[in-house]
Simulated assay, not measured.
Amino acid sequence: MASHAPAGLALAHRLTAAILGAYIFAWGFITLAMAGLFALGMSFHDAEHLSSILVFLVYLGAFLWAFIAKRAKNMLLVWLLLGGGGALMAACASLLQYILV
């Protein structure tokens, strides 16, 4: 029974990274896409709707990509890229919004 614990723990870690990491990445994407499209001249509601449509594909891609990592050090890279990338995109969107307003 103890031999299944590491595999179960690895699966739980991968699933958590897929759900939460992909959510953070998708959140960053949608904020940056909305700010960027608005900066390019698209109306706010059109930018909001287009970003909301595209984020489904981004979330799905990030979610599935989190399952590609097979080793523990690759899971750290997944967390850094998904969480850090989402935070970086949100920071860039905040800066862009500050410049626009």
Results as ranks from 00 to 15, higher is better:
M1G: 07
M1F: 05
A2N: 12
A5M: 11
G8T: 04
L9M: 07
A10T: 00
A10P: 00
A12P: 00
A12S: 03
H13S: 05
R14Y: 01
L15C: 13
A18L: 06
I19F: 09
G21V: 02
I24D: 02
I24K: 04
F25K: 11
W27E: 14
W27M: 12
G28K: 02
F29C: 08
T31H: 13
M34Y: 04
M34Q: 15
A35N: 06
A35K: 04
G36S: 09
L37D: 10
L37P: 00
F38L: 07
F38V: 05
G41T: 05
G41S: 04
H45E: 03
D46N: 01
A47K: 01
H49S: 03
L54K: 01
V55F: 09
V55R: 10
F56M: 12
Y59C: 13
L60Y: 05
A62L: 10
A62D: 13
F67A: 06
I68M: 07
R71S: 14
R71H: 11
A72C: 10
N74Y: 11
N74H: 13
M75Y: 05
M75T: 08
M75L: 15
L77I: 13
L77E: 08
V78Q: 13
V78W: 11
W79A: 15
W79G: 08
W79F: 15
L80S: 08
G83E: 04
G83D: 05
G85F: 07
A87P: 02
A90K: 02
C92T: 12
A93T: 07
L95W: 11
Q97K: 10
Q97L: 12
Y98K: 09
L100A: 14
